[in-house]
Design a protein around this nucleic acid. Sequence first.
DNA 1: AAATAATTGTGAAATAAATCACAAAAAATA
DNA 2: TATTTTTTGTGATTTATTTCACAATTATTT
Lengths: 209, 209
Amino acid sequence: MSKHIPEKVSNRLTLYHSIMVEYIENGLDTISSPQIAQRLGIDDSQVRKDFKLLNNAGKCRVGYLVKDLKDSIEKTLGFAHAKDAFIVGSGHLGLALAKYDNFNSYGLNILALFDNDPQKVDMQVNNKQIFHISKLPNLAKRLEVDIAILTVPRQNAQQVADFLINSKIKYIWNFTPAVLKVPPEVKVWNENIMGSFLQFACKDIIQED
Amino acid sequence: MSKHIPEKVSNRLTLYHSIMVEYIENGLDTISSPQIAQRLGIDDSQVRKDFKLLNNAGKCRVGYLVKDLKDSIEKTLGFAHAKDAFIVGSGHLGLALAKYDNFNSYGLNILALFDNDPQKVDMQVNNKQIFHISKLPNLAKRLEVDIAILTVPRQNAQQVADFLINSKIKYIWNFTPAVLKVPPEVKVWNENIMGSFLQFACKDIIQED
DNA sequence: AAATAATTGTGAAATAAATCACAAAAAATA
DNA sequence: TATTTTTTGTGATTTATTTCACAATTATTT
């Protein structure tokens, strides 16, 4: 099925997923669209339309089965297919991500970290080794890894990205504020942390008419 | 002016901003909408419409002045108004954010960190002190801080959020995967790191028809 | 000086997303 | 059993966003 999930929908699905995890922890079996909508401050019909996309039917007057919803969200978002990735840049952000065990439960498997600082090389973080960046091309080939999480300083971002592209990396999850130049076959996802903050700030904090 | 900047626009503005920084570093004075559009894989008329929103006129056959654009983006996104914030949770993510000096240049001023681990209390990170969480209410009041960056483990997220709300925190930038329950006067921005990844993954990596 | 090419600015059209409104279903209550 | 209430599912409407198309402008070339 070539069902295309729009970005906004998949973002909501992850929020629904968190709520399902919470409901399961609290031993609740069912949930209704108004309950979810109120929690997220959105319209309840939107929740139902999103669930329709998952082919997940609810029951009138009862709601949806929490367990079923959680499963279909995971299936739809591809949590099931584990994907291997490297973290490139073992600064604080890289290390934080390496320790972020949520990745694992969401199907992203960090195999190793890389850095160019000899001091860091051979350290272990959360059972993952830090390698010198020069080892990346070989390891990527041998382990068939084509996803890199880029957490180097902005100044080095493009140069390191070029190196990754030469190493046949096809997907770059870019945590640096640089806007990378890449060939069309390489996909970049800009995490843009400051961007999120500014959206937050613009919408709600500033506002002087 | 009560010009409302939609989320999608402000997200693009931050990307434009990064490109402007890069152009300035490379000594380039002007930039055209097709140049930017190609870089970001979007339509060039959209770039122009975004700039229109900034009241930033370009010059036919030449483009826009990079410096002017950077300034108006900063003015529009409120980079100029420094805002003070606390980081709550001094785990790896909290520490990484404390060291992320970009915050500062974008107008977000981290004053201090908090944790409940006595081992961490009184440590210094990037010239910012880690305080015991019990000190937060007083410091928030004295320093008039109403923004908190929440980086505690998911299990503690709601409980800590409740504590923050009692301490008169009004804006929570939530890096945990928990969906927080808050009263209407408190604004939450969910960073949802995994969400971004899954959007990335759904759009480009999976895709088995 | 005229022709050419690149670029802006913007209305119109197309696409996408969110909200509304309500019939149908089914649990709870009287 | 009949009535009430809650909730789903969805077509219609509205709103927002993106793309298209092109006139107007202006630097560059001939």
